Simulated assay, not measured.
Amino acid sequence: MAFTKAIRQAAPDALEVADPWHLLQNLSTAVEKTCRQHRDCLRRPAGSEANRGSKSPQAHVAACELKSARIEVGAYLVAGP
Rank of each mutant, 00 (worst) to 15 (best):
R8K: 14
D19A: 10
K55S: 07
V73N: 02
G80D: 05
A46N: 02
V17H: 07
V73M: 05
P57I: 00
E32F: 04
C35L: 11
A63L: 13
Q9A: 10
L27V: 10
Q9R: 09
T29H: 03
R44H: 15
L66W: 07
D40N: 05
I7N: 09
A2S: 03
N51D: 03
A63N: 15
R70I: 14
N26Y: 04
V31I: 11
A18R: 14
C64S: 13
S54H: 04
L27N: 05
R70Y: 07
A30E: 07
E16H: 11
Q9L: 08
A10Q: 11
R43A: 15
S48W: 06
G74E: 07
F3G: 09
R39P: 01
E32L: 03
R44K: 15
G47F: 04
H38C: 07
A11H: 08
Y76N: 12
A63E: 15
G47V: 02
G74W: 03
R70K: 08
A69Y: 09
A10I: 05
L15M: 14
S28W: 07
A11M: 09
P57W: 00
M1D: 02
L24I: 12
K5S: 06
H60R: 09
R44I: 15
K5M: 01
T29L: 02
L24M: 12
P12A: 10
S28I: 11
H38M: 04
R43W: 02
L23K: 04
V73Y: 03
A10H: 12
N26E: 08
Q37I: 00
T4M: 11
A75C: 11
T4K: 10
E65Q: 13
C64M: 15
I7F: 11
C35K: 14
